[in-house]
Each structure stands twice: as C-alpha cells, then as structure tokens.
C-alpha cells in the first residue's frame, strides 16, 4: 500500500527536495506551506508520517506539532522536525512535544529517505 508523507515548509524549494527524495521510493508526498495549511490538509486524508519545518509564518512548526499530537487521528503519526534551528531549547521543546527526529538543514535526501523508512515502519 502506498504510504503518504506530508512535508510542511514555507520554502517551496525545500518541499520539492523532500518530494524528490521520497517519490522514487513509492511515497506519495502531500505539501503544505505552513502549520495552518498542514492541519487543513491532515483533514483531507490519512498521512503516515509528517516532516515539518520549525520557523514558518501563520503557525510555526512546534505549534503545529502540538496540534497534531492533540488530534486523536494523528497523535501517533511520527513527526520529523526539519529545521535550520540550532537552539537546544527548541530541540528539547520538539522532543517534549512528541517529535520522533530532529534534522538540521542542510540535509541529504538519502538520509531523509532512510529516516522516513525507519519511522514509517
């Protein structure tokens, strides 16, 4: 069965890079440009894993993560935080909020694919 991954990032090029990293491995990738857009698209269909930026307009990634973990249908969906954020307190906040992994940009697509494979199983 085809698995669906959501990438939430305000940078279109970053979203494209994630799509490029995952699409050849059979993943369907849903794109969202911020936390609000991400929550809206979570209503549209099941997502097996979420990759989210931290610093975004409208709704930042950590708020989005907390909202995802509040929802009964997505509370167990693994979330990878993909960010330029280097502050340890933000990382700790992400960990406490239920993120499964923390990736500091720039990232290698193979690494991201390996992480998605690991967490989605």
């Amino acid at each position: 069965m085809e698995k669906t991954v959501m990438i939430v990032d305000d940078s279109a090029s970053l979203r494209q890079l994630v799509v490029l990293a995952l699409k050849d491995s059979g993943y369907r990738v849903v794109e969202a440009c911020d936390g609000v857009d991400g929550l809206s698209k979570l209503d549209a269909g099941r997502v097996h894993l979420i990759i989210s930026d931290v610093n975004m307009p409208n709704m930042d990634g950590l708020t989005f993560l907390k909202e995802v973990k509040k929802r009964p249908d997505t509370r167990f969906t693994p979330v990878i935080m993909l960010t330029t954020e280097s502050a340890a307190d933000k990382k700790d906040e992400g960990r406490a909020a239920g993120a499964k992994a923390w990736v500091v940009k720039p990232f290698q697509p193979q690494q991201m694919l390996a992480a998605v494979n690991k967490l989605i199983q």
Binding site: L17, T84, P106
Partner: peptide, 15 residues
C-alpha cells in the same frame, strides 16, 4: 541531485 541539495542555501538565506 547534489546541486539540488546545495540549493538548500536558499532556505537559509530566506530565513
């Protein structure tokens, strides 16, 4: 593919 990876600079510059 490496070029695309390098293009991540834009996200950093943008921030």
């Amino acid at each position: 593919e490496q070029l695309i990876v390098e293009l991540q600079f834009q996200d950093r510059v943008s921030q």
